[in-house]
Amino acid sequence: MKPVLEVDELIQDFGGLRALNEVCLTVHEKEIVALIGPNGAGKTTFFNCITGIYKPTSGDMFLTVEGTRHRLNGRKTYEITALGMARTFQNIRLFSQMTVLENVMVGCHCHTHAGILSALLRDRRTVREEQDTIDRSYELLKTVGLERHWEDTACNLPYGAQRRLEIARAMATNPHMLLLDEPAAGMNPHETRELKELILRLRDEHNLSVLLIEHDMSMVMSLSDRIYVMEYGSPIASGTPEEIRHNPDVIKAYLGESRDA
């Protein structure tokens, strides 16, 4: 298996706080990897670092797309997205006043080309590109089961649907690597089951690698190929779900804590 995302000794300091402490992580082709850990462990910070929103203090990050290995350090967020890594947000960040379809259309931005001049002239090529964008966005809405809502305003969608719309929007950027930040948060068990099937389907149909942050243990255990566990910014364990389930450190740090809660 070839690696897609490689992160080496990533450190992120916020003033005196070390939010990430030498985190190493690898995701291979078509692999689903989970990143778990108590609240405040630094999982979201990790996503923000590899997507260029934060500038990490030190460490190396690489994304391999179609045989080419790109160093991610110092790249802008939109460049990283264009390379082929897309994400969703823990606190949903949809374009809330725009329609569901338009949200996904925005995701197509980095693979379309029409500039201002072609917008004003509306030549055949521009019109065709636009229609392709519309149709492709609608297809993506179908994949996540939101096609009936395509004309609705995004903020009027129920919570679970908003999370799926975020996934559709991220998929519109044609990613090789998809980062999901707590995609099942706020979903009921039925929706969570559907979400799991959706992730598996996307992986198979789009040759996708997935890195997901999730608190729902049954979902994490049944979905992931491998799991990384973090606590206070430091990686404390990694392995298959079976290994993680029996790792005493993890039980102490994470599962034990959540059982008390």
Binding site: I53, T81, F89, R93, L94, M98, V106
Partner: peptide, 11 residues
Amino acid sequence: EDEIASEAMGI
């Protein structure tokens, strides 16, 4: 609507 999200969408 959202600068961070739109940058993450490749804008």
